[in-house]
């Protein structure tokens, strides 16, 4: 299916059919991107809806000559970034103010044991700051180039490289701290 830039112009004019067509064409891409950062279908669906909602409320900001799919990817990543930050803040607050655990805390790896020790890798990846996690996932999972990541995040390529370096270093440190790996 090829994308027609005219669809954006029609959607900017408020034509419902054009907006519907844009959602139909780009929802698989948005779902795929959001799936990279969130593991539950409900979260992915909610965020994908938020993305399209933002897209149509700001669609007049898109110039006719602008790369719409690129702009949409930027909106999607920004929405994911905001949600990851919110989740991180919520979790931090819950750890401080939430109910105290009476029993011994269960190691995350015991809960998330998956074939091939991926539970450990997942916990280590989720522990990364969203600023580091997003470029790493875009590079390693989404397989974007440094230039594409820089464009999507609105930062310089040097900045992307620095973040990728820090993300890998921090991920390695998180993995090294994992009790599963410390076992002789």
């Amino acid at each position: 299916m090829t994308f027609e830039p005219e669809l954006v112009i029609r959607a900017q004019a408020g034509e419902g059919a054009a907006q519907e067509e844009l959602v139909r064409q780009f929802s698989p891409m948005v779902f795929r991107l959001v799936s990279r950062f969130f593991r539950h279908r409900e979260d992915v669906e909610d965020l994908a809806q938020d993305v399209f909602f933002k897209v149509f409320t700001r669609i007049n900001q898109v110039r006719p000559d602008e790369n719409f799919p690129g702009w949409l990817r930027r909106v999607t990543i920004n929405t994911c970034y905001d949600e990851l930050r919110r989740t991180r803040r919520r979790n931090a607050a819950f750890e401080i103010y939430g109910p105290q655990q009476e029993s011994e805390p269960v190691a995350a790896t015991e809960v998330l044991v998956e074939p091939g020790d991926f539970g450990i890798a997942r916990v280590a990846l989720d522990a990364l700051d969203p600023k580091l996690k997003i470029p790493l996932i875009l590079k390693e999972v989404e397989e974007l180039s440094v230039a594409e990541i820089a464009q999507s995040l609105g930062i310089t390529q040097t900045n992307v490289k620095v973040r990728l370096f820090r993300a890998r270093k921090k991920l390695a440190a998180n993995l090294a701290q994992s009790p599963e790996l410390k076992r002789p």
Partner: peptide, 14 residues
């Protein structure tokens, strides 16, 4: 690991 939109997703967004 990728989720796909269900057939009613577009309608829900609209």
């Amino acid at each position: 690991r990728v989720f796909e939109p269900d057939p009613y997703f577009t309608q829900r967004v609209m």
